[in-house]
Computed example of a mutant assay.
Amino acid sequence: MLGLPDTIRAYLFDLDGVLTQTATVHAAAWKDMFDSFLREEAGRDGTPFVPFDATADYDTYVDGRPRQDGTRAFLASRGIRLPEGSDDDAPGTRTVRGLGNAKNVTVLAMIKERGVRAYPGSVAYLHRLRDAGLPRAVVSSSANCRDVLRAAGIDELFEVVVDGVVAHREELAGKPAPDTYLAAARLLGVEPAHAAVFEDALAGVASGRAGGFGCVVGVDRVGQAGELRAHGADTVVRDLADLLAGEAP
């Protein structure tokens, strides 16, 4: 059905990098925040300033993860431990939450300045699913998910949204844990074995595999097809339009 096994009855999509062209914006916002922090740290203890890599560090430590988890994971990679802090920490406070809040302020400003565009191939695929009456959900770690969907003009194409707000309220573990995808499948009334997960993030692909989903589709926007397969993707496409054209390898 639409390029996937006939057993698939529901379709669960990550947001950034799968549906919308915002993954690069998030990577730039993480780099802006972490580079500022790392420069300050270098000044504090005299260690060399080593900048955040918007490709390697982003893909390995933060892409697809909840903001606080990504902040912690990257800091740990540099041997840095900070207090957790609280949700209302001022952006830039030397806490996990404060750094995450600074990143959020930056990404919202970037999105406002640049706007949000959906990938045309993804929009075409979503319309085919809707026309076929197949259930669809967005599963994102972002607390800004609904705003981004509205800005991209695709919010009405989904019956279920499980985002960072829902995950916090329901105490769902973030990707690479499968909890958010499993919650979306439950809300759609479909068993994981009959649902497909669409992800561009390595943590998200691992999440789909851990949840026992019937098909995990890796969306390769940045040339990491091998890594997506290694993390559990059943098939990898460059764009969802490939599935419509029957080009999935």
Score class of each variant (00 low, 15 high):
Phe158Gly: 14
Tyr119Ile: 02
Leu134Ile: 02
Arg150Trp: 05
Arg78Cys: 09
Pro120His: 02
Ala173Val: 05
Arg169Trp: 08
Glu156Ala: 15
Thr95Cys: 05
Gly153Val: 12
Ala152Lys: 00
Ala152Thr: 01
Glu170Lys: 13
Ala152Gln: 00
Tyr125Ile: 10
Ala184Glu: 02
Ala90Asn: 08
Ala206Pro: 09
Ala185Arg: 00
Arg114Thr: 03
Ser140Cys: 09
Leu99His: 02
Ser142Phe: 08
Arg78Gln: 07
Pro176Met: 14
Pro120Ser: 11
Pro91Ala: 09
Leu82Gly: 05
Val161Cys: 10
Val165Cys: 06
Leu134Pro: 02
Ala206Gln: 07
Arg146Thr: 06
Val96Thr: 02
Val165Ile: 14
Arg97Gly: 05
Pro176Gln: 13
Asn104Glu: 14
His127Gln: 05
Arg72Gln: 14
Val197His: 09
Ala118Thr: 02
Glu199Val: 02
Val116Cys: 07
Asp131Tyr: 04
Asp163Thr: 01
Val105Pro: 08
Val138His: 07
Val96Lys: 00
Ser122Arg: 01
Asn144Tyr: 04
Leu134Arg: 04
Arg117Asn: 13
Asp87Gln: 03
Ile80Gly: 03
Arg72Lys: 15
Glu170Cys: 05
Gly92Leu: 14
Lys175Glu: 10
Leu157Ile: 01
Val96Cys: 02
Ala73Pro: 10
Glu156Arg: 15
Pro178Tyr: 02
Val162Ala: 01
Pro135Tyr: 01
Gly133Thr: 05
Leu188Trp: 06
Ala152Arg: 00
Asp179Cys: 07
Ile111Ala: 14
Val123Thr: 00
Arg186Glu: 11
Pro176Lys: 06
Asn101Trp: 03
Gly153Lys: 02
Asp131Pro: 03
His168Ser: 15
Pro176Glu: 08
Ala193Val: 05
Pro120Asp: 15
Gly189Cys: 08
Phe74Trp: 15
Ala195Trp: 05
Pro176Ser: 09
Arg128Gly: 01
Arg146Lys: 11
Ala76Met: 15
Ala73Leu: 14
Lys112Pro: 04
Val96Asp: 00
Gly92Phe: 10
Leu157Glu: 06
Ala152Asn: 01
Asp87Glu: 10
Ala183Asn: 07
Pro91Gly: 14
Asn104Met: 08
Gly133Lys: 03
Ser141Tyr: 07
Thr180Glu: 11
Tyr181Cys: 00
Ala90Ser: 03
Gly204Gln: 03
Val105Trp: 04
Glu170Asn: 13
Val166Cys: 12
Ile154Met: 04
Arg186Cys: 05
Ile80Trp: 08
Ala73Asp: 12
Val165Gln: 14
Gly92Glu: 09
Gly174Gln: 12
Leu182Cys: 03
Val116Arg: 01
Pro135Leu: 00
Val116Gly: 10
Val165Pro: 09
Glu159Gly: 14
Lys103Gly: 09
Leu182Asn: 06
Val107Ser: 13
Ala102Val: 08
Gly174His: 13
Arg72His: 14
Leu182Trp: 03
Val123Gly: 00
Ala124Gln: 03
Ser122Asn: 08
Thr95Ile: 10
Val123Asn: 00
Thr106Ala: 13
Ser142Gly: 13
Pro83Tyr: 10
Val162Gly: 02
Arg81Gln: 11
His127Ser: 04
Arg146Gln: 09
Ala90Gly: 01
Val105Met: 13
Ala76Thr: 15
Ala132Cys: 04
Arg97Met: 13
Ala206Ser: 13
Leu149Tyr: 14
Asp147His: 13
Glu159Gln: 10
Ala151Asn: 10
Pro135Lys: 03
His168Asn: 15
Thr106Ile: 12
Gly98Val: 11
Glu159Leu: 10
Gly85Glu: 12
Gly133Met: 03
